[in-house]
């Protein structure tokens, strides 16, 4: 159980792929113009992560170390293709909105990173859970950033939810304010960078607080004797 707990903590916060490892920044910054876009990409990435982690873990003992990376890439590519086709079939508008970033999940370092660093060394159940948590962590950052940018840039939230969830979700769209002068910067790429920077800063601040809260009592390390004392 504690392993699951550690994995959750690592994936969601401590070793968050987006905020700490800074992996997969390209899709992260590119598609987080709105909450739903972020959510869509996040879910897709999560699905790929779980699938690839599970598969990699399953075959981990069969794969020769020398060619593991190409094999991982093949596995990931396969899952990405599956996801891509699924999205093409069921959430076509979103698929179009996300565009190239769906196929680009293949190159998302977060995925191959987890496959290499974790899944290839651990049993299936942990690997799958790790994929889930990393994916959720990534998704959380995506939706937070997407939500922030959407609120600042267009004054709405959850707009386009119908693309992901179907027509019923149209009513989910919240309009927070209407203005003649929209804050375009938030929607534009610089806004993504600035927002991302601020999120990372926020995380660091929180981490510092946490650290101060549970400060470890000072330990003293035994000094090694270099040379023997005389007998």
């Amino acid at each position: 159980m504690s392993e699951y707990k550690t994995l959750s903590w690592q994936g969601l916060w401590k070793n968050n792929p987006a905020l700490v490892q800074l992996l997969g920044l390209c899709p992260l910054l590119a598609v987080t113009g709105s909450f739903i876009n972020g959510l869509g990409l996040g879910l897709a990435t999560t699905a790929v992560l779980i699938g690839s982690n599970t598969t990699v873990s399953l075959v981990r003992n069969l794969v020769p170390a020398e060619i593991r990376i190409p094999i991982f890439v093949m596995v990931i590519a396969a899952f990405v293709t599956i996801i891509q086709l699924l999205m093409n079939a069921y959430t076509f508008t979103l698929y179009q909105a996300l565009g190239i970033f769906i196929p680009l999940i293949v190159t998302n370092c977060a995925i191959i990173g987890r496959a290499e660093a974790y899944a290839s060394k651990n049993p299936v159940k942990f690997a799958a859970f790790d994929g889930l948590m990393m994916g959720v962590g990534f998704t959380l950052v995506l939706v937070t950033l997407g939500g922030l940018r959407e609120i600042l840039g267009s004054g709405t939230l959850f707009s386009g939810a119908e693309f992901l969830f179907g027509d019923w979700a149209k009513q989910l769209t919240l309009t927070l304010y209407v203005t003649e002068h929209k804050f375009l910067l938030a929607i534009l790429p610089p806004g993504a960078f600035i927002g991302m920077g601020l999120l990372i800063a926020l995380k660091n601040v929180l981490d510092k607080r946490l650290e101060q809260l549970n400060k470890q009592p000072a330990k003293v390390v035994q000094r090694a004797r270099i040379t023997a004392e005389s007998s």
Binding site: E180, H181, K182, F183, L184, L185, A186, L188, P190
Partner: peptide, 10 residues
């Protein structure tokens, strides 16, 4: 630049 990019009309 920020303002120009964000509020081009104004």
């Amino acid at each position: 630049v920020t303002l120009l990019v964000s509020f081009p009309v104004a």
